[in-house]
């Protein structure tokens, strides 16, 4: 009850704040607002291991969090100058539209209708995800196509239910959908056998599996039933701010391509390579063109590392999630990450 009321209040408050903020805040650009405040305000999920959680000391960490920190480093030269705001699935877009947050970095899928009709612009895809299904090994199922007539637990999140419907319609099967508002109830229902399968983004399934009593009892099926390109989002009609967020994300990817790491960035600043010089602000003035400090790229890499470091630290095989890079690897190695040239 409390949870639901809070959520409704948050929605209503988000809308109300939006109405007020939209009338007053339009004058200043987001960058000016952020600089004047001295802090970036970033909307994250707060409770998704690997993407955004607080550690024992209350310090936020995770993949989504590091994207925010990269932008903070670009603007202020300090990855710690961020305030994280809890956004839930229902209120995240309102929070952004209303100006409550400067950017949204919350495992959010870039889709046509969101970009076109919600007053948002998305940055580059930072994580290529896809919806999958997880079952207990004991069920003896090897493919999602065998799951006809099974019960499937999901969160009401966005397109999850719709993708399942589309998938089972395409193979001509039916299934029983059980939708939970609360991730804990969703997990419990799956672990206690109410549902044969649980469906979510594959990265999310990895984090659900990580909290099982015995993770080895569960297996994620091979099918990926949807494309879920996760990208940060900003308000529409502020192209300078969008450029900053986009090129900060691309800076992470380009740094990995160029072999620039958190540890060797000072060394690399002495490089003769003209693109590295441009990225790190040794040569030309890319930073100034973004209305940022010319060392913005150096600050990002010094602050959070390159894409590979961010991935391995939060999601990689040595973490509880144990994700492999999969499609989230450099284009030159057969992946999908492809940063446009810095020139």
């Amino acid at each position: 009850m409390k949870n639901r009321i809070l959520q409704l209040c948050a929605t209503v408050a988000g809308i109300a704040v939006g109405l007020v903020a939209a009338t007053s805040a339009n004058a200043a650009t987001t960058l000016e607002t952020v600089k004047a405040r001295g802090k970036l305000i970033c909307g994250v999920s707060m409770s998704t291991p690997g993407f955004a959680t607080a550690d024992a000391k209350g310090h936020m960490q995770g993949f989504d969090v590091d994207v925010c920190r990269a932008v903070a480093a670009a603007v202020f030269g300090d990855p710690e100058k961020v305030d994280f705001v809890l956004t839930n699935i229902n209120t995240r877009f309102q929070a952004l539209q209303s100006g409550e947050i400067d950017m949204l970095s919350r495992q959010t899928t870039l889709t046509f209708s969101r970009e076109v009709s919600l007053g948002l612009d998305f940055g580059p895809t930072v994580f290529y995800d896809g919806q999958g299904l997880m079952v207990a090994k004991s069920l003896g199922v090897n493919s999602a196509k065998e799951l006809t007539d099974a019960a499937i637990c999901t969160l009401p999140g966005t397109t999850t239910a719709q993708n399942l419907s589309d998938f089972f319609r395409s193979i001509g099967g039916k299934f029983e959908l059980v939708v939970f508002e609360n991730p804990d109830e969703n997990r419990n229902a799956f672990f206690s056998g109410r549902c044969e399968a649980i469906s979510s983004d594959r990265s999310d399934l990895a984090s659900i599996r990580a909290v099982a009593n015995n993770p080895d009892d569960y297996v994620v099926l091979p099918e990926t039933i949807s494309k879920e390109p996760l990208a940060p989002a900003v308000r529409q009609n502020d192209s300078n701010w969008r450029d900053i967020v986009s090129w900060s994300a691309w800076m992470l990817m380009a740094a990995e391509e160029r072999g620039i790491t958190q540890a060797n960035v000072d060394e690399m600043a002495k490089s003769e390579d003209p693109e590295i010089q441009r990225m790190l602000g040794v040569n030309e003035e890319l930073g100034k063109m973004l209305n940022l400090d010319n060392k913005w790229g150096y600050n990002i890499i010094k602050g959070v590392g390159n894409y590979g470091e961010v991935f391995e630290r939060n999601l990689g095989t040595k973490t509880a999630l144990g994700l492999t890079r999969g499609p989230n690897t450099r284009w030159s190695e057969g992946g999908l990450l492809y940063a446009p040239p810095f020139r």
Partner: peptide
């Protein structure tokens, strides 16, 4: 309160629609 235990009442259906269309 159905929404807490996965019964598709009006609020749950509306929430799904809100998520899909963004028209809160």
């Amino acid at each position: 309160l159905a929404i807490a235990i996965g019964y598709p009442d009006l609020v749950m259906v509306s929430n799904t629609i809100m998520n899909q269309t963004g028209q809160a």
